[in-house]
């Protein structure tokens, strides 16, 4: 393959599919699904399908204020950094085939690292807005970060240990070809789902936003296109987080591999369909959690993560160890 072709292909991956353009569209679809389902669960009609797009466009066209006291550069850079941080990991998560587009040994660590960037961007942006509400919200974001990251990492460790690889694609094909492992990972999956919910700062873990007392926390001073980028970041993070969980715990594009040859076009189409079904199912679960639970206080949140989810994640690792050494699953 000539250099030009390879470069063009890489650019296509980054900018169109599965990179920017696809993620942008899919994130808006996911936001719509999330808001519509949330409204239906509350017995409301809910927004029309184009609503997320209209919101995004309107915010882009509005005035974007930088407060006088704010640290201008950091305040303006934060949303861009956050968006870049969540757009990148999709390149390492398998979507339509067993291999992700830029898979390499150890990409799981890169993905987990990149997924923490939006939280840090939010922390820097919120803190440097120099708004009292923003700063209190930032402190809570930070407290919450230490709560959910550890169980999230531990939970993601379980499939990696079972598969004996640090590559997301490798783990997906390991779990996909041995579907009996999916129930083994049940505890880890639950822990990862709850941690993802906290990462996204959604109810019941939306203490940093807490609109009744902190008027949306770190985002309080953001307006116009900077707010639009932060909202898009949240949506993309939802999609990418769901894609990561589906690859790690549910076997990614499998069982498409069993139906058609994964390398072929038919296999790719079926694999992509399976990807959509699995990610939307995860979004569905997260929405139901958001609709049926009430917000925790910050200290309750920390104790939920340290007293319940961390031990559960450790139990999951032990279960994986036992299953692996006794070789009950071929």
């Amino acid at each position: 393959m000539s250099l030009a072709v390879e470069l063009g292909q890489s650019l296509f991956y980054v900018l169109v599919f599965p990179g920017f353009a696809f993620l942008f569209g899919y994130a808006l679809v996911a936001e719509y699904a999330d808001r519509k389902l949330y409204a239906r669960l509350q017995n409301r009609v809910g927004p029309p399908a184009v609503q997320p797009f209209a919101d995004f466009l309107k915010l882009l066209s509005k005035e974007s204020i930088v407060p006088e006291d704010a640290e201008g550069t950091i305040f303006e850079a934060a949303p861009i950094v956050a968006l870049a941080g969540v757009l990148t990991p999709i390149l390492y998560v398998p979507i339509w085939s067993v291999e992700a587009v830029f898979a390499f040994q150890g990409d799981l660590i890169v993905v987990l690292f990149l997924l923490t960037i939006p939280s840090f961007a939010l922390i820097f942006g919120g803190w440097h807005s120099r708004n009292a509400f923003g700063q209190v919200g930032t402190v809570r974001t930070l407290t919450q970060l230490f709560g959910y990251e550890i169980p999230f990492f531990l939970a993601c460790l379980a499939p990696a240990v079972a598969a004996g690889t640090w590559s997301v694609s490798g783990i997906a094909s390991f779990v996909g070809t041995r579907p009996l492992y999916i129930p083994v990972f049940a505890i880890g999956f639950a822990v990862a789902l709850l941690s993802l919910q906290a990462k996204l700062e959604r109810i019941p873990f939306d203490v940093p936003e807490a609109e009744t007392e902190l008027v949306t926390g770190p985002l309080v001073e953001y307006s116009g296109r900077k707010l639009a980028l932060f909202r898009l970041t949240k949506d993309v993070e939802l999609v990418v987080g769901a894609a990561l969980l589906s690859a790690l715990f549910l076997g990614g594009p499998y069982p498409a591999g069993a139906i058609a040859d994964v390398g072929s076009t038919a296999g790719a189409v079926i694999g992509f369909g399976v990807f959509l079904v699995k990610t939307l199912a995860i979004v569905f679960v997260l929405t139901v959690l958001r609709a049926v639970l009430a917000r925790l206080r910050i200290e309750q949140l920390v104790s939920v993560f340290y007293l319940w989810l961390v031990p559960l994640a450790l139990i999951q690792l032990a279960v994986v160890g036992v299953v692996g050494t006794t070789e009950v699953i071929p």
Partner: peptide
């Protein structure tokens, strides 16, 4: 739920920076 302004895209925001 009975009137549900979100049908028209109306959301209630908490900070003046987000509101139209």
């Amino acid at each position: 739920p009975r009137y549900d302004l979100e049908r028209f895209g109306v959301l209630k925001k908490d900070t003046p920076r987000h509101a139209d």
